[in-house]
Amino acid sequence: MTEYGQDEILELVWTLREEGNATRTQLLRRTEEDEPEKILEELSSAGLLEASADEVRLTRPGEERARVIIRRHRLAEVLLNNLFDLDNNQMESTACKFEHILTEAVTESVCTFLGHPPVCPHGRPIPREECCDKIRTEIKPLVTRLSDAVLSEEIRIVFITPKSRKRLEKLSALGIVPGSRIRLLQRNPSFVMEIGETTVAVDKEITDEIYVKRA
């Protein structure tokens, strides 16, 4: 459980810093952990945190870890709020659990799925990761929307989130299902993709719902 507690404290330090109030007093007042002093001790000796008289500061590695936790938490908030329409309490408590269990790959998929949202439902910034970058020097096998895929490169469909069942049926009858290898040929004036020897034109709306990875 120490890791859980550490995550919570690091997260709180990040939040307090955003509020411009990263003091030990504030931290101790706001935390919900049972033995915050002990955890602070742990974090300090692990080199993740520097606590002077009253100020608490994240070290470089601490900053990194907090950033990942904050990112997962806020992405989870967006997911729960936008998609499932949960109320604030449920959203908070679930997001708190999510932040500890999401793997890097899942976080990336969620971020892509949500269209790389810049802020959480409370209006706080979501730390950006590599998957949010539009300008890349090297193309990693990241999950992107088909509409953002690199032209004429072979890609594989990872998942499809269609608005209607009918759409899903139609796409699957054409062979467009997860696992299929496709190529995006053009974006304008309409999206055109190639699957096997078939060329299919579709709306942007549909390509937004197809998530792909480099094959």
Binding site: K166, R167, K170, L171, L174, S190, V192, T198, T199, V200, A201, V202, D203, E205, I206
Partner: peptide, 9 residues
């Protein structure tokens, strides 16, 4: 409806 159209060669 959706625009899903096969383009022949």
């Amino acid at each position: 409806s959706d625009f899903i159209l096969e383009i022949p060669p």
